[in-house]
């Protein structure tokens, strides 16, 4: 797969179809990988592909100008779709080198929670596709029908219990905003948390401000979050943010039969206005 990936990347650079390729390279910090930006053909040998390529590189698409190639997994492609829906990137200037991905692992080598129920091992949109040669053994063992099982424990709790759970989580928040910064869909040039007049969210790391921040972020991602799980991965204090977003995803799916990141032509339900909306008040 790696050979093919490098070959395709090389071709894109050679034919001047892209000026830069965003991909993964080995990190000299440890055995993991780190995002890299390759601008010349001889740089493509730096590209790597293994189960440590956790990053959602679509995060960088907005800030890299010009024609750009991106190495993307199925989940990453979903965020590219969402970014297109929201006018943030121009599909014409992007070449997607999609990779068939079986699963990614965390620092301890455990398969990531999101990968266990993954339904986009083969990305839904791409310009080039690199298929896996190995048998999809890992994929078969996945529990794709248990998409929302991660929520069961919390959903079983009573409202006060659930509130208590989240209060304990939000208490830990240090407001480093890594969740926001790593999120491809948190692209606002000024975040609502930075607004001072009026101040929607208290800026200091207090329980009150932290609660508002995390809940507002979940709401701003409702119907948009494509579940790359990056926010939870980077949270230095282990707040289970994916559960928040997953819950919103579930609600949106139940109410509007909509899953973000699958179809760039579809309008996200929360930013849609329809004259034929069945609810009287909206007209």
């Amino acid at each position: 797969m790696l050979e093919q990936l490098r070959k395709k990347a090389k071709e894109l650079l050679k034919n001047k179809e892209v000026e830069v390729i965003i991909g993964y390279q080995k990190s000299n910090n440890n055995s993991f990988t780190t995002p890299c930006f390759i601008e010349s053909e001889d740089g493509v040998d730096r590209l790597t592909w293994d189960e440590h390529c956790v990053y959602n590189l679509s995060l960088y698409l907005k800030e890299v100008k010009g024609k750009v190639g991106i190495v993307a997994k199925g989940c990453d492609v979903k965020s590219i779709v969402a970014l297109m829906q929201e006018n943030q990137i121009d599909r014409d200037r992007i070449k997607i080198i999609a990779l068939e991905c079986q699963a990614q692992v965390d620092q301890e080598g455990q398969i990531l929670e999101k990968c266990r129920t993954c339904q986009v091992h083969i990305p839904g949109m791409y310009d080039e596709l690199v298929r896996s040669k190995t048998s999809p053994s890992k994929i078969e063992s996945k529990e794709s029908d248990k998409e929302y099982s991660v929520l069961e424990e919390l959903e079983a709790k009573s409202t006060p219990e659930r509130w208590q759970f989240w209060q304990r989580q939000f208490e830990k928040c240090i407001r480093c905003y890594a969740c926001r910064q790593v999120c491809p869909l948190c692209y606002c040039s000024e975040c609502i948390s930075e607004k001072t007049a009026p101040q929607w969210i208290l800026p200091s790391p207090s329980l009150k401000g932290n609660t508002t921040w995390n809940i507002v972020r979940a709401f701003h991602l409702a119907g948009r979050c494509i579940d790359c799980g990056e926010c939870e991965r980077v949270c230095p204090v282990n707040i289970p943010l994916r559960r928040l977003n997953k819950k919103m995803e579930k609600e949106i799916q139940t109410m509007f039969n909509y899953v973000p990141g699958l179809d760039s032509k579809k309008k996200p339900p929360l930013v849609d206005f329809r004259v034929d909306d069945p609810q009287e008040f909206i007209r």
Binding site: T34, P35, F37, R175, C176, A178, Q181, V182, V234, P236
Partner: peptide, 16 residues
């Protein structure tokens, strides 16, 4: 320019 490219501008390194 190159060195900062990967940086996502979070506050982890600063805060920790």
């Amino acid at each position: 320019e190159k060195a900062s490219r990967q940086c996502i501008s979070c506050g982890i390194c600063r805060y920790l």
